[in-house]
Simulated scan of single mutants.
Amino acid sequence: MIVLGVESSCDETGIALYDTQRGLLAHALHSQVAMHEEYGGVVPELASRDHIRRAIPLLEQVLKNADVPRSAIDAIAYTQGPGLAGALLVGASVACGLGLALDRPVLGVHHLEGHLLSPLLSRDPPSFPFVALLVSGGHTQLMRVDGVGQYTLLGETLDDAAGEAFDKSAKLLGLGYPGGPAISRLAEFGDPGVYKLPRPMLHSKDLNFSFSGLKTAVLTVVKNQITNICEQDKANVARAFVDAIVDVLVAKCVTALKETGLKKLVIAGGVGANRQLREALDAAAHKRRFRVYYPELEFCTDNGAMIAFAGAMRLQINPHAARRDYAFNVRPRWPLDELKNV
């Protein structure tokens, strides 16, 4: 079965073809980072319009690279939510329009389910069950994953997600958009211990997170240094920020593994590409004898491959999950715990 995946939840347009027999056939991605950079963040209307421009050319590129005709597509999966409403509507309309034209069933996929399952696309995929840290621009959650559609929420952020804290703190330091990669690069030149920043909820005795206070602490440091902050000071603040957020994420992951009794940890979402986080998790895994699985770097950010794969997994379990009526709706707010088991 060949499934076409369409991702358009925010500022990346992704198209992919996944074959349940041969694996990922081809995928293509267009990032809108350059377009949104001058605004310091994603402009929803511009994002939607750009998805319209990019979707069909990317589809043609993927079909050509996979050497697969449109008629070979068996089903179409698209991101139904969560995300920006206008951006989601573009992907849904493209998927359902193509389904109508080809007389193929379509399936709405939860964006976060795509991220949770994305490590299964790697060359060395984990087996179920495992603990997953879903850490991205808009979400920070710890989940127990027992299978496709079998997700148990263990903990989540009570305010800002880790990715939001990265972006907002980077903006306070005068760094460009997107802020996460920029502050991580700057942190490499910082000296540890120069600034002491809080580790929010590190000892909360639960698996929840809170990062708004950490962002406020960065703001306080920057304001105190506003008249004479130099590039080295900025690097030192960045180092303190990254160290704090990594300490919290690693500690919560270790606690989740201990409480569930599992020995496999999956990292999913854009922040999963962070080098400092990976190094700290690898060190903890070596010390405490568990294993960490990461998606390939190209699958950490939003992409069509994870949507095609998640759709294919659901259709393998329940072939009737897709439909042919081609009426569609999107769910900009869609908690993962509302996702029905297949």
Results as ranks from 00 to 15, higher is better:
residue 270 G to T: 04
residue 281 L to V: 04
residue 304 G to I: 12
residue 252 K to D: 05
residue 238 A to K: 07
residue 276 Q to C: 00
residue 254 V to A: 11
residue 288 R to Y: 04
residue 245 I to A: 05
residue 256 A to V: 00
residue 242 V to R: 02
residue 314 R to N: 14
residue 285 A to V: 09
residue 310 A to E: 06
residue 298 E to F: 02
residue 241 F to C: 09
residue 284 A to L: 04
residue 317 I to R: 14
residue 224 N to F: 00
residue 240 A to G: 07
residue 231 E to S: 15
residue 311 G to L: 05
residue 239 R to V: 13
residue 277 L to R: 13
residue 297 L to N: 13
residue 281 L to H: 08
residue 243 D to L: 03
residue 296 E to Y: 01
residue 266 V to I: 11
residue 269 G to K: 06
residue 308 A to V: 10
residue 247 D to A: 12
residue 320 H to K: 14
residue 319 P to S: 10
residue 241 F to R: 13
residue 263 K to P: 01
residue 319 P to E: 07
residue 247 D to F: 01
residue 229 I to R: 15
residue 233 D to M: 13
residue 283 A to M: 02
residue 226 I to D: 09
residue 262 L to Q: 11
residue 317 I to S: 12
residue 268 A to C: 06
residue 308 A to Q: 11
residue 251 A to L: 00
residue 248 V to R: 02
residue 327 A to E: 15
residue 316 Q to T: 10
residue 282 D to C: 08
residue 228 N to D: 11
residue 310 A to K: 07
residue 324 R to K: 15
residue 317 I to P: 00
residue 262 L to D: 00
residue 281 L to K: 13
residue 238 A to G: 09
residue 277 L to H: 08
residue 268 A to H: 01
residue 284 A to D: 04
residue 247 D to I: 09
residue 297 L to E: 12
residue 326 Y to N: 09
residue 295 P to Y: 02
residue 234 K to I: 05
residue 324 R to I: 14
residue 279 E to G: 06
residue 291 R to Y: 04
residue 324 R to Y: 11
residue 283 A to H: 10
residue 325 D to A: 09
residue 305 A to R: 09
residue 307 I to K: 09
residue 306 M to G: 03
residue 252 K to R: 08
residue 318 N to T: 13
residue 262 L to N: 04
residue 276 Q to D: 11
residue 258 K to A: 13
residue 225 Q to E: 15
residue 312 A to M: 08
residue 224 N to K: 15
residue 311 G to V: 10
residue 285 A to E: 02
residue 261 G to H: 10
residue 310 A to T: 14
residue 226 I to T: 14
residue 229 I to H: 03
residue 303 N to C: 07
residue 281 L to I: 11
residue 236 N to D: 14
residue 284 A to V: 05
residue 275 R to M: 10
residue 251 A to H: 03
residue 252 K to S: 07
residue 251 A to G: 05
residue 317 I to V: 12
residue 290 F to R: 11
residue 293 Y to W: 11
residue 302 D to M: 09
residue 274 N to E: 01
residue 304 G to F: 08
residue 249 L to Y: 01
residue 276 Q to A: 11
residue 243 D to W: 03
residue 268 A to W: 00
residue 303 N to V: 05
residue 280 A to L: 02
residue 306 M to Q: 05
residue 298 E to V: 13
residue 240 A to V: 04
residue 222 V to N: 11
residue 252 K to L: 00
residue 279 E to R: 14
residue 258 K to V: 06
